[in-house]
């Protein structure tokens, strides 16, 4: 199978280029894209990418495969290859450090902006803070985010204003804390989100939902935030 990989080494390349590798699938098995990258790295050890858990929970190996963002380790070749070809590129919209490795600083910064931690001004009790199963259920579909950046780097609004629009991942997390019955900073959190960029640059095109490897729905979370802002204002 022909795999083309985006290559760029800042020390020696003036511009990025694409390198094609011919990879034989062992026993004709359907490998994950990460397995194929590992085979390529055996051929050429200079190919660089991030990876770790290889089971879709650490969020290291978000890449763009034939135009669609996803985690290399849980994407079977058969799902993304077209006519026996696969092109692997770094996540779009972020600066490339080398090959498939992008600089995720902007992404992490937008996460930090939403105060991604529980705020509760009351003294904690001796034991846990009680929370009903129904209250807890509101966090399902939110806390599972692995910060892989597949969603935010598939979002044009994030491409245009990565420093101002928080992006789907950060907003999913923002709602995760707004929805937590143990958090008391709702007012402060909402006040930080009502400007024209942070939330409202979302135009609801749902690219984020389309690519999320964990099946989460940031657009819905953003809708919830909008409703909360609306309720607060009227």
């Amino acid at each position: 199978m022909e795999i083309s990989v985006y290559r760029y080494d800042p020390e020696k390349d003036k511009a990025p280029y694409t390198q094609a590798f011919e990879v034989d699938m062992p026993d004709g098995r359907d490998l994950m894209v990460l397995d194929v990258l590992e085979l390529i790295k055996e051929i050429d050890p200079t190919v660089s990418y991030r990876r770790s858990c290889r089971e879709g929970v650490c969020g290291s190996d978000g890449v763009n495969m034939n135009g669609k963002n996803g985690l290399a380790c849980i994407t079977p070749i058969s799902d993304v290859a077209k006519r026996g070809k696969l092109s692997i590129k770094p996540l779009p919209g972020l600066p490339v450090i080398r090959d498939l490795v992008v600089d995720m600083e902007q992404f992490y910064d937008s996460y930090k902006k939403i105060q991604p931690y529980l705020i509760n001004k009351d003294m904690p009790p001796e034991q846990e803070r009680l929370q009903s199963p129904e209250e807890r259920e509101k966090l399902d579909g939110l806390y599972e985010c692995i910060l892989c950046a597949c969603c935010s780097t598939a979002c044009p609004s994030f491409w245009w204003n990565p420093d101002k629009f928080i992006g789907p991942s950060g907003l999913l997390q923002a709602y995760r804390f707004l929805a937590d019955s143990r958090d008391t900073a709702t007012e402060e959190r909402l006040a930080n989100l009502e400007d024209p960029f942070s939330v409202f640059r979302c135009r609801g095109i749902m690219n984020c939902v389309n690519v999320c490897p964990k099946g989460l729905n940031p657009t819905r979370a953003i809708g919830h935030i909008r409703n909360m802002l609306l309720k607060r204002a009227v």
Partner: peptide, 22 residues
Amino acid sequence: PKAVFEMDHMGLPFSRKENGRI
């Protein structure tokens, strides 16, 4: 137990029982 309760206070979204405990 103290260390686990601290994690709850930090925001760890434990699954819950009907009575609200972990």
